[in-house]
Structure formats: structure tokens, C-alpha cells
Design a protein around this nucleic acid. Structure first.
Lengths: 196, 196
DNA sequence: CGAGCACTTGATCTATGTCAACGGTAGTGG
DNA sequence: CCACTACCGTTGACATAGATCAAGTGCTCG
């Protein structure tokens, strides 16, 4: 529909307890595999049309469960890729029994997360981007953002618009780029606005 | 944010196995209650901000489970209201044991539904509305739509825009209003486009 | 009968999309 | 080391989809 196909960048699967660099594919819709807990980072989930185009479907952030559906269906329903550096560990932890309790908990957070994502696609452009930044910021207001294009896919805006909005936020001192190796990063920021 | 507060239209809760008219509130975020299976109709879920404004969060259609989170948290996380005439029955059916299997199934469909809703908020206006119509149509292409305003809230458009789009679809013969009591209905249609 | 509500349609405005040019950085191969 | 390419991000100029404002219709309910 409105979003461009993305080239699936594949890498060999590492052993359990994976670390993934920003941009790497984690799994593809239809693959067989495990469910994971996302320990750190941000993951994008896309649904895949019959003709293979990717369409942004949801977001997972640290603490979320990834690929639950594989426990029921045997294969992934979405394709997952890392928007920032990530680490994953197999889920469920400990006993392999499908503990009803932890399933319920993961269902509840999935619902909340879905509502958050829906909210990121409504209202004024600047509010949407700010909403995403708030969602991704840690308690101290530090954020590592996805690429402009990924932010655009998430918020249903264009990357030029995202670029302009982030420039404005810097101009208004709501966001200051962090220095990484002596230069201003384009993706790491300190946020200066109320976290809610 | 971008969406207006809606007046919560309350009604006394009926006994188990409920039928609800279009427009009625089903439950409010924070209430205690059961989980339900939606047997018929379309339900809107809103998250409620601290200041009480409602914000569209998700959609449930026939077959979906409503208010799962109450099993874990003891109270509803969202407010639910009927967008068309609905019927509900308590869930889980039969044994009160939290069957891991059916929980998983409901988690999987919740994820899919969330992805559908996200898709309804991206791309061209006419495509979004058509996407919603497809989602709500039965196998024969018959649909009972929510009000123009509710469609607008779901798709993040304005009700005037929805009205124009539906008028266009009729003009292009993709949609024909059904006759109800001799007059053209404004919400019941026959769809004439491919269901996928 | 009048009030309220949902819907329709027209005229105009504007936020965001689109197109284009350019700069910086990383990687690659000579 | 430099050239070269590819990719990502920034910024400007302009176009347009959809928002906004306004007026009017018809239905339902008291």
C-alpha cells in the first residue's frame, strides 16, 4: 500500500541469547523458530503481503515478547527487524510449561503496546514523533532513535517530514544530540520534555 | 490529543449473554468485570487518559475476545462501546480453567487485529475506509458500518471526509446502500469489490 | 411543532507530501 | 592513499490531499 518494500537483510542465526546490530533481520514471517524476550533495543514487526511487500505492523520495546504466535502456529506471523542494537533471550524463561499467568501478562502488554502504536499514527505530525520519542526514551530521557525512514514508516509520515520535525525539536531545545566519538550523533539524543 | 472526548453513554449491565444496541457503552476502563467473546457486531476500544478523554485504541469484530486483561489485572484496561448492534457471551466458555491453548489463540488473533487497525491508519484516505469496510463485511459482502464519526476516529480522518469517500464509493458502484423500511440506509451496504 | 443529531455538500485553507539539490560518512577496490 | 559509490540525513520550493468552516437536508423524539 503506502509503504515501500524493504530488502530483507539476512544474517546467519546465532546461538541462543542473541545480540543484533541495528538494521539486521531477526526472523521472517513464515519461518519456524522460538519466541523471544526483547532485553534491550527496539524491534519493528511487519506483516508481509502475498507479493512480499513489507508493511509496518507493530513495535516491540525492551521487555516485550516477540513471536508468541509461534508457540501456537509453529511459525512466525510477522517479520521482525532490529531498529536499534538489540539483545534477545528465549522465552518462556525457565520451565517450558506454558504458564497461563505469564501468557496473560504478555497478552496484556501486547494490547497496550498496540494501543500505543495506534496513537503514533493519529494527530499532528510533531506530536506523533514526540510520542514515539517518549515511548523509546529511558527513565533519564536518553533515546536512541531508529532511522528517519523507520520513524516515517511507524508514524505514517515521510522521512523528509521526520527530519524537519527533529530539526525543529533541536531548535526548540526539546532534544539535544549526544556526542558520539566527538561528533553529534543523528540518532542518540537527550530529551528535555516531560516523559508523559 | 487529536480526538474529541466522547460522552460515556451508560446503561445498566444486563445479565450474562448480553445484546447491545449500537452506541451503548459496554464497560469502562477501570471497571471490574468478566472477559467476553464478541459473537456479533463491532466494538470500539478506547484508552482513557488521566483527564478522562477517550482515545481510539482498537477494534474488536465478531469472534474476538474482549477484556482479557481483566483475568490478570482484575479490571479493564480499555473502555468498550458497541459500534453496531452486538451480542456478547462470557469467556472463557465452559471450564473456568485458563486453558493455555485458547489464551494463545486469542493472543494471536489480537496481534493480527492490532496489525489490521494499524493498517487502517496509513496510506490514502479512500484506501483506509475501504480497508475498514472489507474488515467489517461478511462473506457475501454485506456490511453494517459504524457512524461516520466512529469511522473517522478509527481511520484518523474527519467525518466530512468519510462522508465524501462513502459518497464516491456509491457513485463508483463499489457500494450500494441497502433499503431498510423502504428508505436507503446510511449504514447498511452491499459491497461490490474484491473482499481482499 | 421544535430541538437535536447524523449526514451531505460546497468553498477555502494549510499541513504535509513531493521533487530536487546537496553534504557527510562508510565501505570498497584500485 | 585516493576515487568512487551507496546510503543517510538536511533543506528549499512547490503541489495537493484532506482539514476546516459553513450552510442545508432529513430523521427521531419530545
Amino acid at each position: 500500500m503506502s509503504h515501500p518494500a524493504r530488502p530483507p537483510e539476512t544474517r546467519p542465526t546465532e546461538r541462543l541469547g542473541r545480540r543484533l546490530a541495528s538494521g539486521t533481520a531477526i526472523y521472517q514471517a513464515g519461518d519456524n523458530g522460538l519466541a523471544w524476550r526483547l532485553q534491550r533495543g527496539v524491534v519493528r514487526l511487519d506483516s508481509v503481503g502475498r507479493d512480499g511487500e513489507w508493511q509496518f505492523a507493530s513495535l516491540a520495546i525492551a521487555g516485550d515478547i516477540l513471536g508468541c504466535e509461534t508457540l501456537l502456529l509453529g511459525s512466525y506471523a510477522f517479520s521482525a527487524s532490529a531498529l536499534t542494537d538489540c539483545s534477545l533471550s528465549p522465552w518462556p524463561e525457565g520451565a517450558p510449561a506454558l504458564a497461563g499467568e505469564s501468557l496473560l501478562a504478555s497478552l496484556a502488554t501486547a494490547q497496550r503496546r498496540a494501543a500505543d502504536v495506534v496513537a503514533l499514527r493519529g494527530g499532528q505530525a510533531a506530536e506523533r514523533v514526540l510520542g514515539l520519542i517518549r515511548l523509546l526514551a529511558d527513565a533519564g530521557g536518553r533515546v536512541v532513535l531508529p532511522s528517519r525512514q523507520d520513524i516515517a514508516d511507524i508514524t505514517d509520515l515521510r522521512f523528509e517530514t521526520i527530519s524537519r520535525i527533529i530539526s525543529n525539536l533541536q531548535r526548540e531545545n526539546l532534544l539535544t544530540p549526544l556526542r558520539v566519538a566527538g561528533v553529534h550523533a543523528t540518532r542518540s539524543f537527550q530529551m528535555h520534555c516531560p516523559p508523559a
